[in-house]
């Protein structure tokens, strides 16, 4: 179904983990965390960057006038930041287990693969592992119909420090996590991780930090 008003928050939660990737309301922060009373407020940024440096992203964030990077710059002035471009109308398809938020050029989809739970007294270890994995599948599909190359991105902006997944996550995975409590990963070929003070600074044309582990905005 396609709700008349596409701007509303919805939980996207694994079964039994008391955790939710909550997003969907325009100009509002998202909440995401392993405890209801300990959720992390912050931005979710999903979109693409055109060669002129402009960001085209779903409106799930609040513009920040200041960056934590300002504390380290003194009077030397700030780094360049990527600016936001005007975006088209957001549409939403809200099904039982598939929540898709779309711009004409991209879809951001979050899945809730819910179903009956296996009986813990008799189910196999493999079935229990599959049912209780505390994870939420998502994807971003970019439709670049132009003659220019774009850079697609997915990122989070919460008041936590982040680190790379590291070798424990296996080969071919990129992503970031915060103290082993919350994180994301991708195995899409060509995806790279970034961590910076903010998404705008990470995607600035002259950004050189790449992976800056004192930053609070990771993405790929």
């Amino acid at each position: 179904m396609k709700p008349e008003n596409p701007s509303f928050h919805a939980h996207h939660a694994p079964m039994g983990a008391l955790a939710s990737f909550t997003c969907g309301s325009a100009r509002r922060c998202w909440r995401n965390g392993p405890r209801v009373d300990g959720a992390f407020p912050g931005a979710i940024v999903v979109g693409y960057q055109t060669p002129d440096g402009a960001l085209h992203r779903l409106p799930f964030f609040e513009s920040q006038a200041k960056s934590e990077a300002d504390r380290y710059r003194g009077e030397s002035g700030g780094d360049a930041k990527a600016d936001d471009a005007h975006i088209g109308t957001v549409e939403r398809e809200f099904q039982w287990a598939t929540d898709r938020m779309s711009l004409p050029e991209m879809d951001f989809t979050v899945f809730t693969p819910c179903g009956s739970l296996p009986d813990p007294e008799s189910a196999s270890t493999a079935d229990l592992r599959f049912a209780r994995c505390p994870s939420v599948p998502a994807q971003v599909t970019f439709r670049n119909t132009t003659s220019e190359d774009w850079r697609g991105f997915f990122g989070l902006g919460i008041e936590q420090r982040w680190s790379l997944l590291g070798p424990a996550a296996g080969a071919g995975l990129v992503g970031a996590m915060s103290q082993d409590t919350i994180g994301f990963a991708s195995n899409t070929p060509g995806a790279e991780t970034f961590i910076d003070f903010s998404i705008e600074e990470a995607l600035a044309p002259d950004s050189v930090r790449g992976i800056f582990c004192s930053g609070k905005s990771p993405g790929c």
Binding site: G33, S135, A138, V140, R143, N144, G152, F184, S186, T188
Partner: peptide, 22 residues
């Protein structure tokens, strides 16, 4: 993303809490 192409970025978002949860 190359010009003229459709690309899908697959993601997994995850949570973990070790130890006492109650």
């Amino acid at each position: 993303m190359p010009a003229g192409q459709t690309v899908t970025l697959d993601l997994a978002l995850g949570f973990y809490r070790q130890g006492k949860a109650t």
